[in-house]
């Protein structure tokens, strides 16, 4: 019974944040039919991004624009998120990572931070209740970031939710709460250092660090979506996004206005580009590349000498000489060698 009430409330909110006030009979079911057909169509393209990241920007501006309280704006953002994620998972996206709260966000006013914490507390378990997102699409919910910064009540709720969904294997939802990309890299570095414990240092490489990130064992990021037309990462998934071939999509609308239709358009665009971008390097281009490299080798023969000297100087450093060579005169010396 309790659940039903909650569901109704959810649907109500869904309507108010939806497009206008349409509510003639059959509208909702028609809409969901369109959604199903669209997601199945996208699914058959076999070119759906495996991992999508969202920067959900613009909730507060939306609230200001439509004369709501800030907390209501965040609420609207939450419903927008669940509708967008629903389409994503139905279309075959395996992992979604959402930027819910940055460590920097603690700088906001206390009342807003409290409201956000309350929202997280209320909604996180709702995600995996019967018939909701996590249950419907078999989503494993994870909360990533420096969760030690959260209070105890919220942590309990989080651990409960993650335990409830830990055996879902079809898809993953990462909620970044409170998260920054630099913290993630630092965390991974520390993890690697403690696990290696001074042994096998040569085995450390990019993939080691990557596997210790919060998103380590998941598919690499294919698509990053940021709303509200800002061209910045704001410290979100900085390690993952620099990969070659990661698409970055900036949309000039506020997050609560970003609905499934816009998401479907982006997924269509992604699939279209994937189809028509040759994955293999053309033989002609390989040749060109080879030409380019030989040319550059010719030019760099002059440089080879100083490079040797730098390696010999590094072997001096290896003896743990505390003698410090300041970088600038170092460079000048090499200049003169030439």
């Amino acid at each position: 019974m309790d659940q039903n009430i909650m569901k109704e409330e959810y649907n109500d909110n869904n309507n108010t944040t939806g497009i206008g006030g349409f509510n003639f009979p059959g509208y909702q079911s028609g809409l969901s039919l369109v959604k199903t057909v669209l997601s199945n169509t996208l699914n058959t393209s076999n070119n759906v991004p495996q991992h999508v990241g969202f920067i959900m920007d613009g909730n507060r501006r939306y609230a200001r624009k439509s004369g709501m309280r800030v907390s209501e704006g965040h609420e609207a953002g939450f419903f927008s998120m669940s509708r967008v994620l629903e389409l994503c998972y139905a279309s075959g996206v395996k992992t979604a990572t959402v930027y819910a709260f940055s460590i920097e966000n603690f700088k906001r006013s206390a009342s807003e931070v409290d409201a956000l914490m309350q929202l997280a507390h209320d909604r996180i378990r709702q995600l995996c209740e019967n018939g909701e997102l996590a249950h419907k699409y078999g989503v494993r919910v994870r909360v990533i970031g420096d969760i030690s910064l959260l209070d105890k009540k919220l942590l309990e709720e989080i651990s409960l939710t993650t335990k409830m969904t830990q055996y879902n294997t079809r898809a993953t939802l990462n909620i970044c709460f409170p998260y920054t990309g630099r913290e993630e890299i630092l965390h991974s570095m520390k993890d690697v250092i403690t696990t290696t414990d001074g042994k096998d240092l040569n085995k450390i490489d990019e993939s080691t660090l990557e596997s210790h990130l919060y998103t380590g064992k998941l598919a690499p990021l294919d698509l990053l979506i940021r709303t509200s037309g800002v061209c910045r990462l704001s410290d979100f998934l900085i390690w993952q996004v620099v990969n070659r071939g990661t698409h970055i999509e900036l949309i000039d609308c506020l997050w609560p206005e970003f609905g499934p239709a816009k998401m479907a358009w982006i997924l269509l665009k992604y699939a279209f580009n994937k189809y028509f971008t040759p994955n293999e390097v053309d033989s002609e281009d390989v040749e060109n590349n080879a030409n380019a490299t030989t040319e550059s080798i010719d030019n760099s023969t002059i440089l080879s000498e100083p490079e040797n000297s730098s390696s010999s100087s590094s072997s001096v450093l290896l003896k743990k000489d505390s003698q410090q060579i300041s970088p600038q005169p170092h460079g000048i010396r090499k200049e003169k060698l030439q």
Binding site: R182, I238, V242
Partner: peptide
Amino acid sequence: PWHIRLTE
């Protein structure tokens, strides 16, 4: 990656 935190 470390250097694109707030870069426009």
